[in-house]
Structure formats: structure tokens, C-alpha cells
Design a binder for these strands. Structure first.
Lengths: 148, 148
DNA sequence: ATTGATATTGATAATGATTATCAATATACT
DNA sequence: AGTATATTGATAATCATTATCAATATCAAT
């Protein structure tokens, strides 16, 4: 089942309709790297069809999120960011506070420890969000041996 | 060194000034529980002195953050939330997606595992943010045995 | 294919949170 | 006290997002 089929299934299930705009936005989204803002997605869509409005992009990326095709990425501030969610496993983020580089990782020990926390407090897990901040190797090197 | 002294030191260090409003906002902030929005802080301040404007509260809670007295709490959406940071150790959050209850916790295993991730990618740690989502015991019980 | 009920769209206004602007005032050195 | 300047309150501006609404597109049933 590919993304388009997932969407069609989701739409049919609740009496919603497939449209040209909707499909175009989906394809644009799938063609972009992860961590896309609605604004950047709009720009990409606009290049393919300049008749599509901004509100429609906002509406649909949100719909994709409900349909399980997109997921809101952790953001410190600024506009909401979306990443691909269909057949893209859960992962956490490691971001450089200097240059903004982002590494996606999955760590078994962390996942295990999180389950233990859930159990300790009697919570039923439904998801989590984690972002580590730091200096990437390049920025750290530049930081320790400045040109001065 | 109490919070007020920390602030005074921070201000002097950079040629800033202590003011009546600033001190009042600090005291109001310290008197409130953690996870305060600027709006709620403004309401509290307004009760003590209705001459203090909203912008001033926004400006100062931000200043407190820079001074190390406050810290932005993880928020999923909505207005920014602040928590006490002076002599309040780092912790992570476990939130109920149903009722919004928040548990603050520190887990050694998670902290250790995070250090390992930093090392693996050669990053220099500077901080992190983690929020676990789930159903709290009460909500989970209600969920599993509905009144129906 | 035509119809009809209704979901969707684009344009734009509205919202909510936060920041910028600016003249008047308060503060802290001397 | 005098003076330079940081701060303030009021308000306008901004940014991301959502709501409104009349016109249009979609889809299931004919």
C-alpha cells in the first residue's frame, strides 16, 4: 500500500473526496526531504500549479498528519515542521545549536528506558518527542580553535 | 544566592537596571507553580499592580530566561510555558494526552543513554528536551471501562 | 452522462502569541 | 541634583495558523 492508497482509503472511510490539489500537494510533500514547513511546501506546490492557495496547503498537510502520512517534527520555535510518516520509522533528533544540522537516530537503550518510565508511573504509552541539542563535530572544532 | 541576587548580578554585569516592575514580576513568577504562560503571569502581576503592561511581562520573563532564573518548558502547542530554573534541577515530562496531567521525572538510564548518543555522533552536549505522552492511570481506566 | 448533495477551494479576514516602535519616565552612576 | 540611557506602557506590526464564505469540484446514484 503506497501513500496515495493510504490517503484514498482514509478519505473514503470518512466520506471525504480526492481532489487535484490534494493529490498534487501529497506528491510535492513526498518529493521533498523531511522537516518541511507548510510555507516551503506551499512554494513547491505553487511552482507546479500556481492556482493552489496557501490555505489549501495548510489544510492538507494537516489532513495528511491525521491520515498517518505526515508527522509533526520536534521544533524549538518558529513554524511547524512536518516529516514523512508512512513507512518511516519513529526516530529522535540530534541538532547542532550552531549550524542547525540535524541527525536522526534511534537508540534502543533510550526506548527501553522510556518504557520503564511509563511502567513506573502507570501510564499507557502513546508517543514521545525527544531532541538533543549540542555542537556538531565541525562547530565544536571551530569553537575550540578559533581563528583569533 | 537567592533569585533576586542572581537577577541583580545579571543586570549589573551588563549595565541593565533593576526596576519596580521587574522585581514585582520576578516575585510573582516565583510565587507561581511551574509551567506558567506569559499571559497567566501577566494576570497575576496585574492583580498586584494594574499599571504594569503586558509587554513588560513578556520582556521580563524572557530576561529571566536569559539570566537562568526561568526555562522554557516543553510545549506541544499553544503559548510558551516557563518553569523555575534556579535550583530546580533538569527534568523531563510525562504528560497525559487526555487530562493534561504532567509528571516531572529524571531517569538515570535515559540520561546515560543520551550521553552515549552524543559520543556516538561526536556532538558536544548542551541540553535536551524530552516529553513522553500517554494516558495516565485514571484516564486509562476510564478508557478501558467506559460507562456505556 | 446528468444530477444533486456536499466536500473543497481560493481569497481574505480573523485570531493568538509574540515582538517592534516610540515618546515619556525611571534608574544609577557621578 | 544632574545626566546618560535603560525601561516602560500603549499600541502597531508581525508571523503562523485558522475561520469564513461564496463559488466550484467531486462522487455516488440515477
Amino acid at each position: 500500500m503506497d501513500e496515495r492508497q493510504v490517503l484514498e482509503h482514509y478519505l473514503k472511510e470518512r466520506g471525504l473526496k480526492m481532489t487535484k490539489a490534494r493529490l498534487l500537494i501529497l506528491e510535492a510533500f513526498l518529493g521533498m526531504e523531511s522537516h518541511v514547513t507548510a510555507e516551503r511546501l506551499y512554494e513547491a506546490v505553487h511552482k507546479l500549479d500556481d492556482g493552489i492557495g496557501q490555505a489549501t496547503v495548510f489544510r492538507n498537510i494537516r489532513l495528511f498528519t491525521d491520515a498517518g502520512l505526515a508527522r509533526e517534527a520536534c521544533r524549538d520555535d518558529g513554524p511547524r515542521q512536518y516529516e514523512h510518516a508512512w513507512r518511516h520509522a519513529h526516530h529522535d533528533h540530534l541538532s547542532c545549536i550552531q549550524c542547525g544540522a540535524v541527525i536522526e537516530f534511534v537508540d534502543g537503550a533510550i526506548e527501553t528506558a522510556q518504557q520503564a518510565v511509563y511502567k513506573k508511573y502507570g501510564y499507557v504509552p502513546s508517543g514521545h518527542r525527544m531532541e538533543l541539542f549540542g555542537l556538531c563535530p565541525d562547530c565544536a572544532a571551530r569553537h575550540n580553535s578559533p581563528q583569533t
